[in-house]
Design a protein around this nucleic acid. Sequence first.
DNA 1: CGTCATATTGATCGCGATCAAACTTTGTGG
DNA 2: CCACAAAGTTTGATCGCGATCAATATGACG
Lengths: 237, 237
Amino acid sequence: MLALERYARFSSEDREAVEGLLRSPLTRLRAGETVIHEGTSSPVIRVLSSGWAYRYKDLPDGRRQIVGFLLPGDLFNLHIRLREVDHTIAALTPISFHTIPLAQFAALMERRANLSQAALCNELVTSAIQREWLVSLGQRSAFERLGHLFMELFTRLKLIGMTSGNSCGFPLTQNDLADATGVTPVHLNRVMQDMRREKLVELRCKRLQILDEDRLRNLAMFDAAYLQVRHESIEYQ
Amino acid sequence: MLALERYARFSSEDREAVEGLLRSPLTRLRAGETVIHEGTSSPVIRVLSSGWAYRYKDLPDGRRQIVGFLLPGDLFNLHIRLREVDHTIAALTPISFHTIPLAQFAALMERRANLSQAALCNELVTSAIQREWLVSLGQRSAFERLGHLFMELFTRLKLIGMTSGNSCGFPLTQNDLADATGVTPVHLNRVMQDMRREKLVELRCKRLQILDEDRLRNLAMFDAAYLQVRHESIEYQ
DNA sequence: CGTCATATTGATCGCGATCAAACTTTGTGG
DNA sequence: CCACAAAGTTTGATCGCGATCAATATGACG
């Protein structure tokens, strides 16, 4: 299922067109491999089919900032007409993704305005997620940042049916979490232990368990509205 | 001039269509007034015609994080189909903006795919700016963050012809700069003094002067590529 | 069973927060 | 044009979150 379908009511023709896109060839990468590198460009757009990926930017001195995570169904590389991408995208787990030639995508957008608007919405939600990260990095404590990130990812996973009960697969290492929240791995480890001690979350064997969702939501000041979740679709499903 | 024109080569029909949009009524607001508030929505898109505006998010405890600045020509509120906006937009100076009914805009996008892609590009650049802010807030020191912000704004102003030599009008207070860079006003003031002492920039009477652009660019690790500037257009103009 | 990534612990340091108070500029109404 | 208020800037003293440095577990995996 494509994330696009969340942002527009699709006609059967729309859906057919989208399914046409997903018949495009599937590329597989191993964990750690790079999909597209900062400073390059290629005339394609991509849809993550399985696995987790992440976007990051490198600094001259070797540090890096992770600027977002991609989950199955997410559309990315909508870099139509931009000279080059400003960040790198790499696989966190083994992944597979569809690659759709830009020309084909553009032609489709032209015929089906509905899809075009859905693509724009996809970008708008990505943008909204980044703004929430800005609030985290600018104003929240390390504890709150981490809690917020857990809530974001858990909520997004729930939306695509990749949770079971209060837990979900979770491939991020403490190092990854540190690079995403802008703290050092050492400090992240300590914050992680606080959360465990507080019985808020449990993270082991690549599996995340949210032990007290309500309290975590409050502590992290998390409100799912920016993810454009309908309340029904998140509460029960 | 609309920012859109930077992202696509417009045919004369395209340009005509855009100019049609700009004949829509102009709204004026005084400094400090709010354009649209977080949590609300309205079926229009807007184009800033004059003045500076900014996007911010409030926290429950009264703090705020500024997540971006809007300059003349910038398109915003592309919240087609999104339930509600996730942040507030307010005027920093007296501003005027065009308000285009969503239906009219959508119809135009449908007829002129070129414009539709340019609108998407506009969103992509906004998004790229936010990612650069994420790097600042996550990895850079207060000094580097401020330097980077100065470079971003100066470069964007240069693009729209709002600089003269090495200086530009600059309405942000130290308080605004603090809320954008995620430091306290007190600390921002001290960083500001360092920059002055280092003869990098001078900021007084709402006017910013970049005294040593090369050194500032290096210290702040600024590379204008993410703004999609053509090198010619920024070097000489 | 050795190697390499990941997680953990302890000790110390420093950037930027916080608190509190003056000072300076800008704006407004009498 | 001055008096006063309000906004913005500056200074000083102290505190603490998270960085840094350094070592030690604990796995995962060929």
